[in-house]
């Protein structure tokens, strides 16, 4: 198959690459751009480990072809920390032991990022609804929900 040239902005950096049409966005990020924060779990859209933001919306990067992201802005967990400093969400996951085994963490952080950008003060039920899209096989959703709640506090403290 002929390669298709694309240009994609990932975490603020523009990348020009040529990809096979079947190249999944998840593999494009991990293999072609060497951005390894995005994890791949089930590869058929069930687990959510590979969730990234495309044009501000949380999507499964295993169900998106890289060619579809041509001209788009993509954000991944690689870009959460700024200048070596943890983002409020990362800080909160660290404080509340939201990582546990760590495999689902980057996907959880990306769905939480989308939630917090749309709704700066989500209720516990809204947080639970948002993270229910992603599987945590440590079954430790308590810590994850508490982490997002803590991130809300940290962001409000930071905004003062």
């Amino acid at each position: 198959m002929a390669l298709i040239p694309i240009n994609v902005t990932v975490n603020g950096t523009r990348f020009e690459r040529a990809v096979e049409p079947r190249r999944l966005l998840a593999d494009f990020l991990r293999e072609d751009l060497d951005l390894k924060a995005t994890h791949i779990g089930c590869e058929h859209g069930v687990c959510g480990a590979c969730t990234v933001l495309v044009a501000g919306e949380a999507v499964r990067s295993c169900l998106t072809f890289a060619v579809q992201a041509d001209g788009c802005e993509v954000r991944t967990a690689d870009g959460l920390a700024q200048a070596g400093k943890l983002s409020p969400l990362q800080q909160a996951f660290w404080e509340k032991h939201g990582l546990q085994c760590g495999y689902c963490t980057s996907g959880m952080m990306m769905v939480a990022s989308e939630l917090l950008e749309r709704n700066a003060r989500p209720t516990k039920a809204e947080i639970e609804e948002a993270v229910s899209s992603n599987l945590c096989r440590c079954t430790g959703y308590y810590n994850i929900v508490e982490s997002v709640q803590r991130a809300v506090e940290l962001m409000q403290e930071g905004a003062k």
Partner: peptide, 8 residues
């Protein structure tokens, strides 16, 4: 579905 599925 779930949020990311409904987005697409």
């Amino acid at each position: 579905g779930h949020g990311p599925i409904r987005n697409r």
